[in-house]
């Protein structure tokens, strides 16, 4: 019972990190691909949009990690050992962008240093999202080899492969897409709205292209991605719903109805994640040997799971109303 509670929280934390943290990375990615003359405006909009909540957005990652190391230590340590390098790079990205984001806002003197903060923020947003995707891709790619004896197979080829990189790029595009959709609702000027709509289009196209790359790479690496998505009814439904919501989303965009866009975009990404992960759930890491490490078999001792579940339930009772109020309070524009 509690095991299910814990697993549910884990999934929710990962999903929310993809959506909220992802939109946050996306903001940096968008900035990276914005022409110089519009950058400062993009930055302002972005700051207003994510400033109050950005700290909370990143808590989901910590929640997910804590659930993993308390409840599923074997998964946590397997990742830590065999994906050490991409994890370390992602961490460097997180450190760099988190601090640059705050520094550029709180530097009392606005001078040339801003140039540096901006650079760091943009590039590290890109790198963090890329490696987040690479890590996610590697977990299901079946390239991780826990019996490897040489450095390259053990610590490099597990994540440096076409499939993982394609997933990484796909993630970057999704993050950019989420952020663009999010920002559309944050601006008032028609001109800016147009700009963000354009960005959303570009990111959407990029996502489709990289998504296709993911499938090609999966074919090449003999990862049964197509089976997962198209041979399970849940996967199929998820993909259908994602596509339908995309059509609806573009229709609403053209009509200029920005209110529901965010929900649709979030829904769409959720469906994509569902489609990819449902078929092999609860397997969390697929290994080269053909085995998989499953959430169900590596779960920690009963008492631990029980208290972890209790802590999570208690925590959400304390947190959710407060968090909801935060989003609500700062969503309401000073009209």
């Amino acid at each position: 019972m509690m095991k299910d509670v814990v697993i549910t929280f884990l999934c929710i934390a990962i999903l929310l990190y993809f959506l909220l943290g992802g939109a946050d990375f996306g903001a940096g990615i968008i900035e990276l691909f914005t022409s110089t003359k519009n950058r400062s405006k993009t930055r302002k909009t972005m700051y207003q949009a994510i400033g109050p909540v950005w700290e909370a957005n990143h808590m989901w990652l910590i929640i997910a990690i804590v659930i993993l190391f308390v409840g599923f230590p074997f998964i946590y340590t397997t990742m830590s050992v065999y994906l050490h390098i991409p994890l370390a790079i992602m961490l460097i990205g997180i450190i760099a962008r988190g601090t640059a984001f705050v520094f550029r806002h709180y530097d009392a003197v606005k001078d040339d240093m801003q140039w540096l903060y901006n650079r760091i923020f943009r590039y590290s947003s890109f790198v963090t999202a890329l490696f987040l995707g690479i890590i996610a891709g590697s977990l299901i790619s079946g390239h991780i080899d826990t019996q490897a004896t040489d450095f390259y197979t053990a610590y490099i080829s597990g994540w440096l492969n076409w499939f993982s990189i394609a997933v990484g790029l796909f993630t970057v595009a999704l993050c950019g897409f989420l952020a663009a959709i999010y920002l559309i609702g944050e601006t008032k000027e028609a001109h800016d709205k147009k700009r963000f709509i354009k960005k959303a289009e570009v990111m959407n196209v990029a996502a489709v292209v990289f998504g296709a790359m993911v499938f090609i790479a999966a074919q090449r690496d003999k990862i049964p991605l197509i089976d997962w998505v198209f041979k399970s009814s849940v996967g199929l439904w998820a993909i259908v719903l994602a596509s339908l919501s995309l059509v609806l989303l573009w229709y609403l965009l053209i009509k200029g109805k920005t209110k529901v866009l965010r929900i649709l975009a979030g829904f769409q990404v959720t469906m994509i994640l569902l489609a990819i992960s449902y078929a092999h759930f609860p397997n969390f890491i697929r290994l080269k040997s053909g085995d998989a490490i499953s959430l169900l078999t590596t779960v920690g001792p009963e008492k631990t799971i029980y208290s972890l579940g209790l802590a999570l339930l208690l925590g959400s009772v304390l947190i959710l109303p407060f968090l909801g109020y935060l989003f609500y309070k700062f969503q309401k524009k000073e009209e």
């Binding site: 308390v70 230590p73 925590g315």
Partner: peptide, 25 residues
């Protein structure tokens, strides 16, 4: 150690979260 000394970390997660939200406010 994870499953044994993890309890404070999971509660700490809650505390951090509340802290981050309150800081936003």
């Amino acid at each position: 150690a994870g499953p044994i000394f993890g309890m404070p970390f999971s509660l700490e997660g809650t505390a951090f979260f509340i802290e981050a939200i309150a800081l936003g406010f």
